[in-house]
């Protein structure tokens, strides 16, 4: 049991296709309890797809995904929901329900899954709103919040049931530097104070280096490197260095493949 608890997320040999296109190719990933793992990669690297698999929204072609010791690849809805009650997910745009007030949005998981009385729920909601610096907004509607506030409210909702494992999709995308830095501080505090395991998907280098215990760099569906911040910084993999120094990718490394991509579809007879 302890060995299983050691790793909160265990992915092995994950392969997934979108139509005929291979999106993820042999992903192996372990996340330890209480660490912040940052998944990095450019757009199209497969990081969003990986997140969708970790959340159980998509079934892999092959491979295993274990969350909190339970295999979720192909699990029944009941098992999946039992696991998901122990997770928090903060979406890129907040994904708040536009018909509910901010407070009702955040209280929703409590109202659905617990039998707490209204006063307790209200206090817990305010507590989480204070945590994300949104005190006093519980009676506003989502339409009245800015993009950054929506994202933080989404985080508050993800935290409402004190999850063991938090997924955070693009915490700093579209935020001003100050708010972004605040969120980074909050993520670190969640790990230190609440011993939460946190998986962050981002393409922001500064934020990644600031919060990560370990970083996994994805590129074209494969893992380039998994390691501590220093290991990634000093990696001699040219693709990692490209990413770190914002160098444009040398896309034509394989001239044949490049040519095939260009002529694929209409030009090849028989399609």
């Amino acid at each position: 049991m302890d060995a299983a608890q050691e790793f909160v997320i265990e992915v092995s040999g994950l392969v997934t296709h979108y139509g005929d296109r291979k999106i993820l190719d042999g992903i192996d990933l372990q996340v330890r309890r209480g660490e912040i793992m940052v998944i990095m990669g450019g757009s199209g690297s497969g990081k969003s797809t990986l997140l969708r698999h970790l959340l159980g929204h998509q079934c892999p072609t092959s491979g295993a995904i274990r969350l909190l010791g339970t295999d979720i690849a192909g699990a029944s809805r009941k098992t999946l929901y039992a696991i998901r009650r122990r997770l928090g997910v903060a979406f890129q745009g907040g994904a708040l329900f536009s018909s509910l007030s901010v407070g009702d949005n955040i209280a929703l998981p409590l109202r659905e899954h617990t039998r707490l009385d209204e006063d307790t729920i209200r206090i817990m909601t305010r507590l989480k709103l204070e945590m994300v610096n949104l005190a006093g907004t519980e009676d506003l509607m989502p339409a009245q919040l800015s993009g950054g506030m929506l994202k933080r409210a989404g985080l508050a909702r993800a935290l409402i049931n004190d999850p063991e494992l938090l997924f955070f999709d693009e915490p700093s995308a579209g935020l001003d530097p100050v708010v972004s830095a605040e969120l980074d501080e909050l993520i670190l505090r969640l790990r230190d104070v609440m011993h939460m395991t946190i998986l962050v998907v981002t393409h922001e280098l500064d934020s990644a280096f600031k919060i990560a215990d370990r970083i996994t760099v994805l590129d074209q569906g494969r893992i380039l490197i998994t390691g501590t911040v220093d290991e990634v910084r000093h990696s001699d993999n040219p693709r990692v260095q490209d990413l770190l120094h914002r160098r444009p990718a040398a896309n034509h490394a394989d001239p044949d493949a490049y040519f095939r991509r260009l002529v694929a579809g209409h030009l090849v007879p028989g399609r």
């Binding site: 959340l55 929204h57 809805r77 929901y81 039992a82 998901r84 009650r85 997770l87 997910v89 979406f91 994904a95 929703l108 998981p109 659905e112 899954h113 989404g154 909702r157």
Partner: peptide
Amino acid sequence: EALDCMAID
């Protein structure tokens, strides 16, 4: 997706 992630069907 958010509903699904909160284990709300």
